[in-house]
Design a protein around this nucleic acid. Structure first.
Lengths: 112, 112
DNA sequence: GTAACAAGTAACCTTTAGGTAACTAGTAAA
DNA sequence: TTTACTAGTTACCTAAAGGTTACTTGTTAC
């Protein structure tokens, strides 16, 4: 006897969900780099030299598939690819600003 | 010849620094559980049954050592331990609220 | 013909986060 | 004498995140 499947919608903490988008070691920095400029891959890489190109590529792909960033590819030689924020990405600004403010005032900066 | 060591203070992104405190799978949920109540370990565990006790202990220890939570131990048998937010922990409320609001409005809840 | 250019990819490795299951301590109640 | 109680700890495992180094691609400039 097959009973009708009861789909129990699991509660998803919205904060945890948000952290899945912008958490991780580098995503906030990347979003900051793009906050009001379109930038090429190489430019991003040059501004964040601590991020390996592999990781930068990965993070950008995730940000893109989460709808926070757009990737535009020009079919030129040598290749050119430009990244910028989407509206959704820009809508994060106040949240990131609140986080930044808390971090700046409560976390003594020159640590480590 | 020993040259004087030049300590170059590395820039620490305040957002990334904040995420080190409240990032991770469970910390926001724990902070939410403690937002206006002191709670015993068993109470927290009962309210968040998906978190194993080992992980709950670990996360609470980190929150405590980061100054967001206080742990008060009563030397009774059977043991009693109470957790609550510090002032610093409470000061996170507006930040978490901003994150929660963004998550609720932009992330369709019944996902997964 | 060889090097430079940008934007990656591939193969591989290490560290960290998170998870499971079983065990511990000291006392009181059955 | 065994069980229950609370707040953990121990040993072990797996998956994910992040990192390094070398390679690729097609065209142009030397």
């Amino acid at each position: 006897m097959v009973t009708k499947e009861q789909v129990i919608p699991e509660f998803v903490c919205p904060v945890t969900a948000l952290l899945e988008l912008i958490g991780g070691k580098w995503k906030p920095v990347i979003l900051y780099c793009l906050r009001d400029e379109t930038r090429r891959f190489g430019e991003l890489s040059a501004r964040m030299p601590s991020i390996s190109r592999k990781v930068l590529t990965e993070q950008l792909k995730q940000l893109e598939s989460d709808g926070l960033v757009v990737r535009v590819q020009f079919n030129e030689i040598p290749p050119r690819v430009e990244y910028s924020l989407t509206d959704l990405g820009r809508s994060l600004a106040p949240v990131l600003q609140a986080m930044e403010r808390w971090g700046s005032t409560h976390l003594s900066n020159p640590k480590h």
